[in-house]
Amino acid sequence: MSSPIRCEGVAKRFRRVAAVDGLELEVPEGSIYALIGPNGAGKTTLIKMLVNILRPSEGHCVVLDTDARRLTAREFEQIGYVSENQELPEWMTVDYFLAYLKPFYKNWDDGLATELTREFQLAGHRRLGQLSRGMKMKAALASSLAYHPRLILLDEPFSGLDALVRDELIAGLLERAAGTTILVSSHDLGEVESFASHVGFMDAGRLQCSEETTKLYERFREIEVTLVSTATLPSDWPESWSKPQRSDGVVRFIDNQFDANWTPVAIAERFPAAVNVSIKPMSLREIFVSLAQAGRRLRGER
């Protein structure tokens, strides 16, 4: 089966500002794809185009084998969408909200809805407008999981939530949506790195990288070289190494194409006077920050 989400050259411009700019994306079936990027990177715009809330200025996305611009009720029966800034019908109680949505979905699972309500500690009689932000997100998530969707799109679902609520949401999501393709956007990698199987890094409307999380971990290393004296930097600086930072005889940089065989040799060749070489794996957050900084530097140089 083809990917549940596929975008080809998709762009969205608001007047002269390109929120998404020629983006290519493919989300594998069954993956938990973390779409990360700084605020204003275009994540929300991209997700809104995926669910046909916004129409692309160029290119197109295919969602569940249907052009996203032509999504109909049939496709939406298999898509769950939760967004931090979604407006829920605040006058409805939690119970009525779930009961109201039920007839829209053939696969609605009453048992699952009840279980989620209980697990998320949602008071059924309370109006959505009276709920805290965290509880609203739980209600929205419960209402999007109760029909076993094939695809779940979460737009900054954990933003501004306390750690406890966030963990409850993640636990609820992972437990109930096994096998479902999930695309979750966030500007904070710490929120998603524990469960994302794939990561896409978005900046300035473009996808800077997109790959499996394990491969990303393998690919990035923070390298620290301690030198005896103030040695000059080698002229043949590999492209995969980030711009070095120097202080007190220590050179730091990030290798984004780490190879256990090649990298140590390349370091030895370029720093023959090195006293010590430290090669450390990086957390997803560190990788994200380094990518973001590199992107900004590049734009600054342009």
Partner: peptide
């Protein structure tokens, strides 16, 4: 009008 309404991504015909 708008892009935040809950019903936009529900199976409404």
């Amino acid at each position: 009008p708008g892009d935040r309404q809950f019903w936009l991504t529900r199976p409404y015909r």
